[in-house]
Design a protein around this nucleic acid. Sequence first.
DNA 1: CAAGGATTGACTGTCGACAATTTAGTTGTC
DNA 2: GACAACTAAATTGTCGACAGTCAATCCTTG
Lengths: 252, 252
Amino acid sequence: MSESHMDIKETNILDGLHLSAIAKYQQNSNHLSCLGLVDQVAQVLIEKILNGDIKGGSRLNEEHLKNEFGISRTPLREAFRILDKNGLVEVRPRKGVFVKSITKKDIQDNFPVRANLEGLAAALAYPNLTKTDIQQMEEALQLMRQSAQNNDFYAYTGNHKDFHEIFIHSSKNAVLIGMLNTLRMHTLWHRYTFQYYQQDFEESLALHQQILDLFKSRNTPLTELETLVRHHIEIAMDPFLTAMDKLENASD
Amino acid sequence: MSESHMDIKETNILDGLHLSAIAKYQQNSNHLSCLGLVDQVAQVLIEKILNGDIKGGSRLNEEHLKNEFGISRTPLREAFRILDKNGLVEVRPRKGVFVKSITKKDIQDNFPVRANLEGLAAALAYPNLTKTDIQQMEEALQLMRQSAQNNDFYAYTGNHKDFHEIFIHSSKNAVLIGMLNTLRMHTLWHRYTFQYYQQDFEESLALHQQILDLFKSRNTPLTELETLVRHHIEIAMDPFLTAMDKLENASD
DNA sequence: CAAGGATTGACTGTCGACAATTTAGTTGTC
DNA sequence: GACAACTAAATTGTCGACAGTCAATCCTTG
């Protein structure tokens, strides 16, 4: 912590840790700078937003962030465009970039689309699934059970994510994978809320076991698989919405 | 038409019209510059790519484009990010930005996803449809018939686009609308190919009439509507692929 | 003559500064 | 006392320049 001159109020969006980290990587290692300073900055900002360190609705001030990161405004502005591409911020010309805050409407719009696309992904993946894929999903489901037993909601979310990503990836449809990445990022936006989101593990686990069984079975009708996957996401929306409600009311 | 000074070689990626147009707008009118120079440049580039004026695979040289537009590289680079967001180019760090060229795999990935999402859009739109919506779709279908009679493939594509956009918009799902915009842009990428794309008007017209009938009917089951819309896009893929084949072979 | 390395040229990445615009605060008038 | 116009500070938009990197070409050497 060489920044001794910073009595930074915690109103600062970014703490000093990441900026020095970036500066170090920038100087020392070449291969990381090959990844592009822009992408590094974007990655840090994405993390910050997803973890809730940067609150929704807040404005990303170029001048401040420039100083925080110790870089110029040019790569910063391009990083903003990446955030925009991922739907995390809104770029209002001559006004600045604003972190989007998730509303109920966003969730109500997001879930049906994601449900549909993951259903499609499952159907497309079914003929492609290897033994390794099945095995990995079984492992993921096992970890989900374990996390549920420990009442570790955060870990559960991670395992759940792994489970889904396996068959999404096996769909081998680049367009689909890209869109689901974006959609899932939106949902994970308030990932931290999941820590307080008392999910009904029983139902969720049963459904995922059911899905896995369909994947494992030889002659599963594609429509049945697609419908089930789609359904299991659709019914997850209402609990999510009520969880949002609780959190909103709690912060009042 | 005040641009009388353009004897610009067509080897230029961009002709002089747009750049001078941009410069003019930039000076004269405020409300257009409020739209942001970046967005203007992006819009022009998108048009160029969609119309095929900029070939797929070609590299967008910042230095050249800078001179063409008469602007600096900063807004240009940000415009590139917008193109990237729309999936029209690929940004390779330290290499440059390359216009994506559509492959068969892209089409094979794109159509199923779009079919699924438009099916969902139709189902979501059904309860929201107003008399005006129905009427506009009838008009669009009528224009489609007219264009078909004139063998005007280009106009047909436009009318067809209008027809779809009506119910897509009526889904009132912002996420869905955004994704379909991107997906449809990809398909329209080689919009000019449609001029040579000898579509089977009969089947297409019949299907759209069928869809419109389901929209008009009071008690259409949502699944039936969704399946039909989805199906009518899925079956459009193969003719599109063969059309691509022909075009490829023709250009050899 | 061929292969490997150095060199040069072109291009992208980054930066600091200036210009334009918005916003907030202040002053003046009705 | 309230509203409007003006002013000033803050912030975004744009630009030209420099630095670093990649690639192709040319030269050297075996």
